[in-house]
């Protein structure tokens, strides 16, 4: 009686064996041992990390130069996107329902109150970090050539950060948001030429029903249409615009040598005589 060969017993592969397997290799395309080559590949072969170059100025990683504010601002944007999407699952941008949804989020949705709080405080923080980032960029003269245009993109991002925050203010449809947005959009009424109460507005045939404020609110009062418009601007339109600007902003940073590092100081002799050798 010939013995049939027994099937080899299934054995769990070790991690080391897994790393030699097809699945692992299809995901991670470089080895993990700490060689300069692998360190570079870790950054270059990763779509998210390759916003960074493989190597940067050794002093740029010090906190005292950049204060990390630009990066933190972007991180806060990500936090806001995630918490914002979570909140969107429970929110209807319609008059009456909106306020009830906020109450629902605060009291019934698991971690709803926490998510809403985090969205609020991250938004406030993002304004602060944006200002501090600009403050740092100014103090280090980092808007000077060749980065002039990127400073301009940054100013636009500042504007859109504040507009994001402002449009979000109305969404709970409570007294706080309602009156803040009323005060804010009343100013739009006074836009020169394009506002119904602005200089030369009435003379141009502008009324409360065709001026800038009407376009912002979708009506002549802060009501259901305004809520919907604020919602679309807040959740869709401005994030898209801001994302496009961020792509340009980061791309430009990358092209100008990645996160800013302290440059060697210039002395007066550099400006007059031959440029001294820089270390």
């Amino acid at each position: 009686m010939a013995e049939t060969p027994t099937k080899p017993k299934f054995k769990l592969p070790s991690v080391a064996e897994l790393k030699e397997g097809q699945i692992w290799k299809s995901i991670f395309r470089h080895k993990l041992d700490e060689t300069p080559r692998n360190r570079s590949l870790a950054v270059l072969s990763n779509v998210f990390l390759h916003l960074h170059p493989a190597k940067i100025n050794r002093d740029a990683v010090r906190y005292n130069y950049t204060w990390g504010m630009g990066g933190i601002t972007f991180y806060l944007f990500l936090v806001l996107t995630i918490t914002g999407v979570l909140l969107m699952f429970y929110y209807h941008p319609s008059k009456g329902q909106a306020y009830r949804d906020i109450m629902y989020i605060m009291h019934d949705v698991p971690f709803g109150n926490f998510t809403r709080n985090m969205h609020r405080w991250a938004a406030h923080s993002m304004i602060i970090t944006t200002w501090l980032h600009m403050f740092r960029v100014f103090l280090t003269g980092s808007y000077k050539p060749p980065r002039e245009f990127n400073w301009n993109i940054g100013v636009l991002l500042l504007l859109f950060t504040m507009l994001l925050s402002f449009t979000g203010y109305l969404l709970p449809d409570d007294q706080l948001g309602f009156w803040a947005v009323t005060v804010g959009t009343n100013m739009a009424r006074a836009t020169p030429v394009l506002g119904s109460e602005g200089p030369f507005g009435p003379q141009m045939g502008i009324t409360a029903f065709n001026d800038v404020r009407f376009a912002l609110l979708g009506g002549s009062i802060v009501d259901a249409n305004a809520l919907l418009r604020a919602y679309i601007w807040h959740c869709v339109a401005i994030p898209i615009i801001a994302s496009v600007l961020m792509i340009v902003h980061f791309w430009r940073i990358r092209k100008d040598g990645a996160i800013s590092g302290p440059a060697p100081v210039m002395i007066e002799q550099d400006l007059s005589g031959p440029v001294a050798k820089k270390a």
């Binding site: 926490f114 969205h119 609020r120 402002f166 007294q175 706080l176 309602f178 802060v222």
Partner: peptide, 26 residues
Amino acid sequence: WSIFLDAPLEEPANPNLTMNPSKAPW
């Protein structure tokens, strides 16, 4: 911050009841 401090929520929007002072975000 989110655990210890709740985001504010006032009464539902009421065009007939003006907040005083009526302040924009800081």
